[in-house]
Deep mutational scan, measured.
Amino acid sequence: MAAAAAAGAGPEMVRGQVFDVGPRYTNLSYIGEGAYGMVCSAYDNVNKVRVAIKKISPFEHQTYCQRTLREIKILLRFRHENIIGINDIIRAPTIEQMKDVYIVQDLMETDLYKLLKTQHLSNDHICYFLYQILRGLKYIHSANVLHRDLKPSNLLLNTTCDLKICDFGLARVADPDHDHTGFLTEYVATRWYRAPEIMLNSKGYTKSIDIWSVGCILAEMLSNRPIFPGKHYLDQLNHILGILGSPSQEDLNCIINLKARNYLLSLPHKNKVPWNRLFPNADSKALDLLDKMLTFNPHKRIEVEQALAHPYLEQYYDPSDEPIAEAPFKFDMELDDLPKEKLKELIFEETARFQPGYRS
Rank of each mutant, 00 (worst) to 15 (best):
I103E: 13
Y36D: 15
L308V: 04
S202E: 11
L184M: 14
M38A: 14
C40N: 10
Y317P: 00
Y316L: 07
F348H: 03
V21I: 09
E349F: 00
F168R: 12
I140E: 09
V18K: 07
I126V: 15
E345P: 04
L150G: 02
R191I: 06
A325K: 02
N257I: 15
G245C: 14
N271I: 15
E250T: 12
L218N: 06
T63A: 12
V304F: 13
V49I: 15
E81R: 01
D321P: 02
I256P: 02
P328N: 04
A9R: 11
L112G: 09
F228W: 00
Q355V: 05
P226L: 11
K272D: 02
T110P: 15
P328E: 03
H269A: 00
P11W: 10
N253S: 10
R135W: 00
P356H: 13
A352F: 03
E349G: 06
I56F: 15
Y43D: 13
E96N: 11
L156V: 04
S284V: 03
V273F: 08
A52P: 03
C254E: 04
R277D: 12
P196L: 12
P176W: 06
Q119Y: 06
D336L: 07
S213M: 04
Q119E: 11
L115T: 04
V21H: 06
S246T: 00
D283Q: 08
L75G: 02
P93V: 01
A260F: 03
S57G: 14
G85R: 06
K259V: 04
L112E: 09
Y113N: 15
Y358V: 07
A5N: 02
I209Y: 12
I90D: 00
I95C: 07
N224T: 13
L252M: 14
K292A: 03
K285H: 04
Y36W: 12
N144C: 08
A171V: 12
K164W: 02
H120A: 14
C40L: 04
H80W: 01
L156I: 01
L75R: 13
R79S: 14
L218Y: 08
G32S: 12
N262V: 03
H120S: 06
D100M: 11
N253H: 12
W192T: 10
A3H: 03
I53R: 02
G242R: 04
C65I: 15
L252R: 11
I89T: 00
I126E: 10
A5I: 05
S360N: 11
C127N: 13
V39C: 08
R70F: 01
V273N: 03
N158C: 02
L28D: 01
M13G: 12
N253L: 10
V14S: 03
I95M: 10
G215Y: 10
P152H: 14
I83P: 01
L278W: 02
E197V: 14
Q315S: 09
P274K: 04
E326P: 01
Y131K: 09
T181V: 05
H232E: 02
L287S: 11
A307I: 00
D106N: 12
T63H: 15
I240S: 00
G8T: 06
A307H: 00
L313C: 01
N158M: 01
T68Y: 15
R191L: 13
A309W: 02
V173T: 01
S142F: 11
Y139Q: 08
I165V: 08
E81P: 03
I90Q: 03
T181Q: 09
I198M: 03
Q306V: 02
L150M: 14
I165S: 01
I133V: 02
Q249F: 09
H269P: 10
C65P: 12
V304H: 09
L150N: 02
S360M: 08
E81A: 08
P311G: 06
A282H: 05
D321G: 00
H141A: 05
L150P: 12
L343T: 05
G34M: 02
R261S: 11
V49S: 01
P339D: 08
R261T: 06
D111R: 03
V173W: 05
D251P: 04
K259N: 13
F78K: 04
A286D: 13
H80A: 01
D88Y: 15
A42Q: 01
H125N: 13
K99C: 01
K114F: 11
P323W: 03
V214E: 15
H61D: 07
L116W: 03
D175Q: 06
V173L: 12
V145E: 15
M98E: 03
K203G: 08
R353D: 01
E349Y: 04
V173R: 09
K138Q: 12
H180M: 06
F19G: 02
G85Q: 13
S57N: 09
